[in-house]
Design a protein around this nucleic acid. Structure first.
Lengths: 335, 335
DNA sequence: CTGTTAGCGCTTTCAG
DNA sequence: CTGAAAGCGCTAACAG
C-alpha cells in the first residue's frame, strides 16, 4: 500500500493525495471525497519514515536514562512522555545501565536516527561524554547534572540546599552526632551534591563530618542502605541521627536498625530523600525531601520543544524544580 | 554531512562508501583506507532514516503500556529493552493511560512508523481494539491477556492458578472467612483472573465468595487498598483473612487495619500479589505471589525477535512465566 | 486547483 | 573490485 496505489484508485496524481492527507493545499471537494474513500477502502497509512526523510523532522525524541525500574527515572519518563504526547512526538527510550560508554554510543545512535532532540539523564559525566555531547548536532537537555564547560539547558533539583535543609532539621531537633549514608560520590552527581549539603549544614553548626559516620556505598539500593547502617553502627561512638541519600537506602537503614532492636527515632533518627511511595509505607514514616521527577521530565521536554520551535535560551540555563522538607515520624521527638 | 561528501572527499563513488560502511561487498584496502579516513575527518554518521526506508527494517520495536510509574510495567520495559538491545534494536515507548482509544491510535502510529514489531500490554481488550489488531500488518506480541479470537503470541502469568494457590494457603492456615480486595474486573484482565482464582479456591473448599467481603475498587493503587479494606470492615461479620489483587493494595489494606488498631495477621491476615519491593518494606512482611515482569518482557521480546527471523510459532501460543507463593509474616500463625 | 518532476540520503542491481 | 543509475515512499516546488 503506497500513495501511488491510492492515487491510481482515486484517479488522481500522488501529489493530490498528499495534499489531502496533509491538508497542505486546497483540493476540490470532489477529488477530496474520492481520495478519502480510496484511503478508507485500502486502509492506507502513510509511511512515516519516508515522510521524516523529506521533512527532516522525525517527531521523535531520544531519552537516555541509567535504569528504569527506579521510581525516580520512571517518573522522569512519565513526565517526558506526557509532554511529548502533547506535541505529537514520541519517545525512543534507551537504558545506559550507568555505562558511560553506552551513553556515548546511544548519543551517536540517536543522532544517526535523526531524533529531533535528546534528553539525557547521565550517570556520571566524564570528559569523553562531554566531547561527544559537544559534537552533537541536535539539541539536547540534561537532567540532574551538567559537566563543566557544556552549554546546554539542565533541569535539576537543588540537591545541595535540600540536603542541607534536612540536616539542619536534624540539628534543630537537638542532634549533635549526625551521620550520612551516601551513594558513590562520582555517580549520578546527586550523591555528591547531597553529601555537600550535609557537610554545609554541619559546617554552619561549626562541625565537620566524622568519617566513621559517613558510609559511601556502591549504589543507591535498599541493600546498600542496610550495609551503610551496619558500617556506621560499628563506630565506637554512635550517631543519634543518620541522613540517607535516598529513601530506599533509608528504608534499608531502618531495617538494619530494626533487626538489631534499635528504635527509630528514639535511639537513632533517620531521614531520606526523594519522598518515594516507600516513605509512607515504612514504619516509622520517613522524614524526607519531596520533589517531582515527573516535573523534571516535563520541564526538560518543554525546554526541548521550545528549542525546536526556535525559541532560544541562555545556553547555560539551569531549570530548577522545587523541593520541600517533609517531616514525618522517623525524626520526630527531640533529642 | 552526507555519503556524497564523504565519497567526494575520498575520491570514490557513493556506492563504494556504502560498501565499506556496511561491509556488504569486498573493497580494496587502499580505497577502504581512504574512505575510513574521510569518515573520521568529517565525523560522518549514516542517516538511519534513509537506510530504514530502503531496507524496510527500522530496528525499532514499539511498546505500549498503560502506565510507567508502576513496578510491574517498568519491569516489563526493562526486560524488553534488555533483549532489544541484544538484537541491536531500540524501543519506542508509548503510554496509553488505559485509554483503549489511545491504544488503537498508537497501534496505527506504530504501523505508520514502520516498527519491526509491537509489544502491547493492553489495559482492556474490547472488540474495537481487536479489530485494529486484526488489521495490523506487522508482527506483535501481547502481554497479560489476549482477547478471544486473536491469533498472536501472548505472554502471561497464570494469575488464576496463582491466586488460587494464595487463597488455598489461607484456607490451609485455618481461615474460614476470606475476603478479597480486587481491582476493577474489566481492567487489566489480571484483576478478573485473580478474582477467579480466589473463587476457585473457595469453591474447592465448598464455599462461594460473600459479596460483603469482596471489594472491587476502581483501580489498583495503594489508596484503593485502603478503601477496599474499609469497605470490608463495614460488614457485620468480618473476614479473618483478605487476599488483595496486588501488593500495593495489600499495603493500603494493612495501613487501614493499622489505623484502626486491628492486628495483622492475628486478627486479620493479609496476602498480596506481585512481590514488589514494598512487600518486604511493610510490617508485617507480606505473603504474596512472586513472578517476574522482567522475564515477561524478556520472553515477549524473544518471541517477537524469533518471529522477525521468520521462525513461526503456533499462532495462539501462550507463553507462561513462572510464579511462586512467598509466605511471610502477614499470614503467619494459624487461625 | 491539479499534475509532473525533482529530489531526501541511502542501498542495490547492473554493467564494466 | 568499482561506478552509474534506479529507486525506497513521500513532499515540495514548478508549471499549467
Amino acid at each position: 500500500m503506497t500513495i501511488r496505489e491510492v492515487a491510481k484508485r482515486a484517479g488522481v496524481s500522488i501529489a493530490t493525495v498528499s495534499r489531502v492527507l496533509n491538508r497542505s493545499k486546497p483540493v476540490s471537494e470532489e477529488l477530496k471525497r474520492r481520495i478519502e474513500q480510496a484511503v478508507r477502502e485500502t486502509g492506507y497509512l502513510p509511511n512515516a519514515v519516508a515522510r521524516s526523510m523529506i521533512q527532516k523532522r522525525t517527531g521523535l525524541i531520544g531519552v537516555i536514562i541509567p535504569e528504569i525500574a527506579n521510581p525516580y527515572f520512571s517518573g522522569l519518563v512519565e513526565g517526558i512522555e506526557s509532554v511529548a504526547h502533547q506535541h505529537q512526538s514520541h519517545i525512543m527510550l534507551a537504558v545506559s545501565r550507568k555505562d558511560p560508554r553506552r551513553e556515548m554510543d546511544l548519543l551517536r545512535i540517536f543522532q544517526a536516527r535523526q531524533m529531533d532532540g535528546i534528553i539525557l539523564a547521565a550517570a556520571r559525566v566524564g570528559g569523553e561524554l562531554r566531547r561527544v555531547l559537544q559534537s552533537l548536532t541536535i539539541p539536547y537537555v540534561l537532567i540532574g547534572q551538567r559537566p563543566a564547560g557544556l552549554r546546554a539547558p539542565c533541569v535539576k533539583v537543588d540537591n545541595r540546599r535540600a540536603a542541607c535543609e534536612v540536616t539542619t532539621h536534624l540539628i534543630g531537633k537537638g542532634h549533635r552526632r549526625i551521620g550520612m549514608i551516601s551513594g558513590p560520590m562520582w555517580d549520578l552527581a546527586s550523591g555528591k551534591e547531597r553529601y555537600e549539603g550535609y557537610r554545609d549544614a554541619l559546617g554552619e553548626a561549626g562541625w565537620t563530618p566524622r568519617p566513621e559516620w559517613v558510609a559511601a556505598e556502591e549504589s543507591f539500593r535498599l541493600q546498600d542502605g542496610v550495609k551503610g547502617m551496619e558500617r556506621i553502627l560499628r563506630a565506637k561512638e554512635r550517631p543519634t541521627a543518620v541522613f540517607c541519600a535516598c529513601d530506599r537506602m533509608a528504608v534499608g537503614a531502618i531495617q538494619a536498625l530494626e533487626s538489631r532492636g534499635i528504635r527509630v527515632p528514639d535511639q537513632i533518627a533517620v531521614a531520606g530523600f526523594d519522598d518515594e511511595e516507600a516513605a509512607t509505607m515504612i514504619r516509622p514514616r520517613l522524614t524526607t525531601v519531596r520533589h517531582s521527577p515527573f516535573e523534571m521530565g516535563w520541564k526538560a521536554t518543554e525546554r526541548l520543544m521550545a528549542t525546536l520551535r526556535g525559541e532560544g535560551s541562555s545556553p547555560d540555563e539551569v531549570i530548577r524544580v522545587g523541593h520541600g522538607l517533609v517531616v514525618r515520624d522517623s525524626t520526630s521527638g527531640g533529642k
